[in-house]
Design a protein around this nucleic acid. Structure first.
Lengths: 142, 142
DNA sequence: TACTTATTGCAAGTCATATGCATCTGTAGT
DNA sequence: ACTACAGATGCATATGACTTGCAATAAGTA
């Protein structure tokens, strides 16, 4: 008996979320797992090498996002970036204003600032996620 | 002698930045000063009541952004929000996933996390700004 | 194997934002 | 004040990310 493959793992993940485990979606998840940094739809489409139509990439990412399997990262106002959420630590990003280069940032012992934010507002009943992103210039651009 | 008006203040601010002090830009800055929360281009255009063409709003915001007079806030991937930067404290936002309602959040004694982020990267020469945004549901939507 | 319904691809549409170009206006120099 | 020039504006149009309608296909289930 072979041990559980990634193939199987992602198929189960999809089915448990109530989604169908299609070859395209499994390839998409395998790609995102291999890739440490958030990708744009364009990058995903290219890296998938034509096995999935662009529209399907959008629709799949949207389905996966609604199931919280992937995370949508707002680093620029005109390109959404996506990364795998399932089974990953919450982390942050550094973005170069010059070339758009992205790097993951892990801040050790990061506090849970949602608690503090909740104290500041009376208009929200839930604040369950936050994003902390850094901007600057990479060594090439700066 | 009248004391310095906002008109004058913004005109100087623009000229010091190497930009021309046009009536439209001064109205735009006055609007942003009056408005505590970040606005979309569409909201700005409407609130300016036709004194400025939509394209000019885009171009002015871009010019002001490059001079760091306004701040571009990435709260959603498909609508940029802008707020006055000059003379304001750095603050954060809470965004409702249901209706898009935005509230400003001031976290007292917020640490300067750029320092910590700089320790994490060897690829960046500068990390000078960061954004900390919260997401959840407002009381109407949650 | 057959059935049901989610998923896919194609074509076309929407919407935010950008650009080319001619005109206008702030501003510096006279 | 007058001029000249570069920056700013408006209009029409383009771009590019993302979405939607619809018919064809394939995943899950009995």
């Amino acid at each position: 008996m072979a041990s559980t493959t990634n193939e199987d793992r992602f198929a189960s993940l999809l089915r448990e979320a109530g989604l169908r485990a299609t070859p395209g979606r499994i390839s998409l998840l395998k790609l995102l797992e291999k890739e440490p940094k958030p990708l744009t739809v364009y990058q995903i489409e290219k890296k998938l090498g034509g096995i999935m139509n662009q529209v399907t990439v959008y629709r799949s990412l949207d389905a996966l996002y609604r199931k919280q399997i992937v995370k949508r990262v707002n680093l620029e106002h005109d390109h959404a970036h996506f990364e795998l959420a399932a089974g990953r630590e919450h982390h942050h990003h550094a973005v170069c204003r010059g070339c758009g280069y992205i790097e993951n940032i892990e801040i050790p012992h990061a506090p849970k600032p949602e608690k503090e934010a909740m104290k500041q507002t009376r208009a929200f009943s839930v604040l369950d996620t936050y994003s902390l992103e850094f901007f600057g210039l990479c060594k090439k651009c700066g």
